[in-house]
Amino acid sequence: MFLIPKPVGKFFHRMASPPYFYDFTGRLIPWLSWIFLFLVIAGLYGGLVLAPADYQQGDSFRIIYIHVPSAWMSLFVYVVMAIAGGIGLIWRIKLAEIVAISSASVGAGFTFIALVTGSLWGKPMWGTWWVWDARLTSELILLFLYLGVIGLYGAIDDKRTASRAVAILALVGVVNIPIIHYSVEWWNTLHQGPTVTKMDKPSIHISMLWPLLVMAVAFKFYYVIAMLQRARTELVVRERNSQWVKLLLESK
């Protein structure tokens, strides 16, 4: 703990208090939303207007600006969920538990988007809606993992217990994701020809790359906004009988 500067430690300590968290995130979200809007408009303008059409795929490659950031986010959110779940499990911090379960639905959303846009991109490229491509297949399994987390949380009535169950499952999942990912990739190289690697290009021109990176950062901001919104709802529902929620209701 001595490695963490004092103000940072103090900040996290205060964030662990529900009323402070609720108040602080309420003021934070508008700022994040403006940054997100700015980034997303810049990224979309760069990706849909400024970037030249791909010499092989024409304009269909422009799906990359939502497909690839979503695919990145789907993995990133799972890792965040597992870390938050682990923190909640070890130190019994209520807010870490809430962050973990609030991430699940957002992560599932990103996974779903990556799957649907991958399929929509694949249709003109491969001629069919679905190909057992390595990336799409591992994305589908990741969606099942997310649905398992959400389903388990919904199935257990006591939400404190449910959070612990979800944390254990997420940690098991995070150990398994690399194993699943590489086994699917290995399986794919055996069963598929080289035609499916059309999607990932080793070299991408800078005018095509920067909108992709901007969109990736924008999606990170989006994740924080959506996760915090869900966390705030989750928090007031769980703390409905506490004094600060009553004060909050009276102040309205």
């Binding site: 099942f144 199935a155 398994n176 194993i179």
Partner: peptide, 26 residues
């Protein structure tokens, strides 16, 4: 994870089958 649930059967398959994928593949 599911032993305490009354209807754990369906959720169990959702939890466990994705984790079985590597074994199945190899």
């Amino acid at each position: 994870l599911t032993v305490g649930l009354r209807r754990g059967g369906m959720i169990l398959s959702l939890l466990v089958l994705p984790l079985y994928v590597p074994v199945l593949i190899f």
